[in-house]
Structure formats: C-alpha cells, structure tokens
Amino acid sequence: MIKVAMTGVYVDDVAQAHAFYTDVLGFETRTHLDLGGGTLFITVGAPGGAQPDLQLLLEPGDGPVAEPYRRALYEAGIPCIVFSVDDIRAEYERLRGLGVRFTHEPQEQGPVIAAVLDDTVGNLVQLAQPKE
C-alpha cells in the first residue's frame, strides 16, 4: 500500500514558518537540521503522536519554480494545503485571538465547514471540519 509520508509547503522564511506552524497552529517539530549556509531542513507534524508517519516539510519558496507558483495560488485565493480540525469554530476563535488573519471565516462548502487563513509566510491555508 502506498501512503503519504511527507508533503511540502513553500514559504518565504523557513525559520519564521517554523515558529508560526508550531507556536500558533500547534504542530510539533519532527526534524530540525541546519544544513549549513543558512539552509534549514524542518518538518512538522500533528502533535501528540497523531499521524506519526506524516510530515509537513517547510521548503524555501524563493526559487524560479516555487515563487511564481506560490504567488499565483495566493493571488487567486487558493489555499496551498488543507488541514483538518475537530471544531472549526473554536479553532477559528483561538487563532483570531492570536492575531491570525483569515481571508474568510468558517462557512459551509459542500461536505465541510471551511475557513482560510494567511500563514504569514506567503500562503493561504484552509482549515476544514467535516459536516456532521
């Protein structure tokens, strides 16, 4: 069976992204390597052992392929990744209390209730909760 092991998100600043994804969104650091020359290899994942085999790689997004891709997604209002949450309204309020900017508040979208936030490092991120 094939499973997702790692996926990446291009970011403006890997260290700043690491702080946002851990301190604000609540992920835990899985890998933190200094590769030299200012290059960091950082992965984060769901806290508390949830999804232990799945990691999110915070990748430098300033390359000739990544930058236009990221900019186009952002300008079109398209999230680069979707995270699931158990209680979207509570998570929305918690994150707003921490100063996170949302481009749209929780609203029904087909089989989910979804909200979109700005991750401060060049991306829109969707939070989704399945409707009951």
Rank of each mutant, 00 (worst) to 15 (best):
L33M: 13
L117T: 02
G99Y: 04
G48V: 11
D87E: 13
E28A: 11
R89L: 12
H104Y: 15
L127R: 01
T39W: 09
V9L: 09
L56G: 00
V116E: 00
E75N: 07
I113D: 06
F41M: 11
Y74H: 11
E132Q: 14
A90W: 10
G26V: 03
L117P: 01
D34C: 09
G26N: 06
K3A: 15
F20M: 13
Q51M: 12
Y21T: 03
P111I: 09
L40K: 09
P130N: 07
C80I: 10
F20W: 14
M1V: 12
P111T: 09
V82T: 13
A5E: 14
A72V: 03
P130I: 02
L40V: 06
I81L: 14
D13M: 01
I88T: 03
V82K: 05
G97T: 14
T43H: 01
T103D: 12
T120K: 03
G99D: 07
D34A: 13
G36T: 10
F83V: 05
Y69V: 10
I81V: 15
D53R: 05
A19L: 08
V85E: 04
P79S: 04
Y92E: 07
L73K: 12
G38T: 08
P68L: 05
G122K: 01
A46C: 14
R96H: 05
A15R: 15
V85I: 08
L98W: 05
D53Q: 10
L40Q: 10
G49Q: 12
G26P: 01
R96W: 02
I113G: 04
R94K: 13
D118G: 05
C80A: 15
H32I: 01
V65E: 14
V11C: 04
E67P: 04
V85N: 04
V14P: 00
R94V: 02
P68V: 07
Y10Q: 12
P52S: 07
Q129M: 13
Q107F: 07
V116S: 02
T39G: 07
T43S: 03
L54K: 05
F27G: 05
Y10E: 08
L73D: 03
P60M: 04
D23L: 11
A72F: 05
A50Q: 15
V100N: 02
A66G: 04
K3C: 12
A46I: 11
G26R: 06
P68Q: 06
G122V: 00
G110V: 05
P68Y: 07
D86Y: 04
M6L: 08
Q129D: 06
V121C: 11
L35V: 09
V24N: 10
D87M: 10
D86I: 00
M6G: 00
S84C: 10
T39H: 14
L73R: 12
I88C: 05
Q107V: 13
E91N: 08
N123Q: 09
D34S: 12
V65D: 14
L54R: 06
A50G: 14
G37D: 13
D87T: 10
Q16I: 08
G36S: 08
L40A: 13
F41V: 06
I2E: 11
V24Q: 09
D118F: 04
A15E: 13
